[in-house]
Amino acid sequence: MAIANRAFVVLCFLFFSCQQQKQAETTKPVENENSVEKSIAQVKAELGKKGYQTFDFVDEETKDTILMQQYFMAFLKNGPNREQSKAELDSLQVMHLTHLKRMYDEGFADISGPFGDNGDIRGITIYKVATLQEADSLANLDPMVKAGRLVIEVHPWWAAKGFPLR
């Protein structure tokens, strides 16, 4: 009986090992023969046609060409009207988050979030648009701004394309 139990355990182990291997093989990324990496010049030209400001430089250490793109950082600061009731504030927060989701979904914003302290600057949103006026206009659509709870201060900001936050 002990041999039968061991055999059963070994068979189960082999079965589940094979299943995990099969699943790992089917979830591996498959290279798409239709996808072609674009050169820095192509990306720069495409961004330029859309009105984005860019520049590039060569990293002396790696000899890689780094493409910099202009974004716009909107600082969300304490506004003049911060006396909302809890119910009003809860509603505004839902509308604020819905606005930010729309900015992400439509490709206007790349990242945003609140600061962890209770200072005058409450948070930031980084807009991926061509002009300061467009970023300012989108930021001022935020229901928290419309209600006066927050005010917006927008600044141009440069970042290297393709480099993740770490």
Rank of each mutant, 00 (worst) to 15 (best):
S91A: 14
F108R: 12
V154D: 07
L97P: 00
H155R: 12
R149E: 07
P156M: 06
A87K: 13
I40C: 02
K49S: 00
I66K: 14
C18T: 04
C18P: 00
M73C: 12
E106I: 09
K50T: 01
A87N: 09
V145T: 11
N81Q: 11
I66P: 06
F75N: 14
S91G: 12
D120H: 14
S137T: 13
S112M: 07
N118E: 13
E25K: 03
R102C: 03
V94G: 07
F15R: 01
T98S: 15
F57W: 08
D90V: 02
T26V: 08
G162M: 01
E88G: 05
E106F: 04
P143W: 01
S137R: 15
G148H: 05
A74F: 14
Q84W: 10
P29L: 11
Y127I: 01
L150H: 08
V43R: 08
W158N: 10
P164S: 00
I121S: 13
S39F: 12
A109L: 13
V10F: 02
I126H: 13
A147S: 15
L14V: 11
A139M: 10
L47I: 02
F115H: 11
F72M: 03
V151H: 06
I40Y: 03
I66Q: 14
Y52H: 05
K50S: 04
A7L: 07
L14Q: 03
K44V: 01
E37R: 10
V151I: 13
V154M: 07
P164T: 00
W157P: 00
A159F: 09
A139I: 13
N81S: 09
K128N: 15
R166L: 12
I124M: 13
R122K: 15
E33N: 07
D105W: 05
K77A: 11
L132R: 12
A159I: 04
F163V: 15
S85C: 04
T26N: 05
A130C: 05
Q53C: 06
H155T: 11
K28S: 09
H99I: 08
Q20L: 12
T62V: 05
T26A: 03
H96T: 03
E61I: 06
V10W: 04
I152L: 03
S137I: 01
N34L: 15
D56I: 02
S39Q: 06
A160D: 10
Q20M: 11
D142P: 02
A41S: 12
G48M: 05
C12Q: 04
L11H: 02
T131E: 09
Q69Y: 01
T54W: 12
E61S: 09
Y52P: 00
F55T: 09
E33C: 03
S39A: 11
